[in-house]
Design a protein around this nucleic acid. Structure first.
Lengths: 152, 152
DNA sequence: TCAAAAATGATATGTTGTATCTTAACACGC
DNA sequence: GCGTGTTAAGATACAACATATCATTTTTGA
């Protein structure tokens, strides 16, 4: 394993950890937020806001509008409960909330699955390049598109 | 400067180089393609397909539909005449066509300007991470969002 | 010159994202 | 409990980005 433990969560344990992290920031863990988090966490690949809106609407028998989903996903991203995959216009639940990394996403063009890698040395180098160009408030976007092992 | 010269082009010289590269691949340099390339090259920031469609339509007094623009931008990207900035859903002309790099884009969230950096060591590391995960047909997406020097 | 192929156009529609305003839920002092 | 301010969520509309399909034009080359 890497430099430190990640406490990978799943299922209820993951939702509990997410709730704890969100509340630690003074935000509330509402029913809608819980439902959206659970749905997002149920995906094994990046899910679009509309995917989530549809599933949550069905599951609760009550429409959740896409803009509400976007609002809540933005909140999740801001609090590190979820990440946005830019090259897929979609979102992934963070399976170890509370642990901040610049993630690297490997996204398969065939099956859509995304694997998530941390390489702090690499992301630090990216930050360094940006810093040396005078950038502030840096947010690296490091992704790889390709064909995954299973699809080869 | 870096490991090799880039022959940075601009204006007609750039268009000429782009034309040469496209024709080298057996593709034609049509009027529409030339107009779209010129318009794209005239932007100092990533331009959306619709931006380009509007400008080209006005400039030529003849409507160019967005789907045509997408088609041609895809062709440009495939032939390294242009690059897509994933985190901006937009495109940039390659100012040194013929020279293949995994580009790193630094995009300012304030002014929208993008600067383009090459760091082969960095992109090779990203490719290596993906390779070690069993990925093939690798296309790295390395971008940084932040606030540029001028906007600070 | 004619037929096939390539490029572009027209049109429609699908997908992703935001803006604005309204309503509902909640929290807290009185 | 009762009003009041604040936060969360809903409704609606629309803007922005992207693709699918089929028609038309242009180019090419036998």
């Amino acid at each position: 394993m890497g430099q430190h433990d990640h406490h990978e969560h799943h299922g209820d344990s993951l939702a509990d950890a997410a709730q704890a992290n969100l509340e630690k920031s003074g935000e509330k863990w509402t029913d809608t937020r819980a439902a959206i988090f659970d749905t997002l966490a149920g995906f094994s690949r990046p899910a679009s806001a509309y995917d989530i809106a549809d599933l949550v609407s069905t599951a609760r028998g009550k429409r959740v509008a896409p803009n509400s989903v976007y609002r809540i996903l933005d909140l999740f991203v801001a609090n590190n409960l979820a990440m946005r995959v830019e090259s897929a216009n979609a979102y992934l639940a963070n399976s170890h909330p509370g642990c901040e990394h610049d993630c690297i996403f490997l996204v398969c063009d065939t099956c859509g699955e995304a694997t998530h890698v941390d390489d702090d040395s690499l992301s630090q180098q990216v930050r360094k390049v940006a810093t040396s160009e005078g950038f502030k408030s840096i947010r690296p976007v490091i992704e790889v598109r390709g064909i995954c092992q299973k699809c080869n």
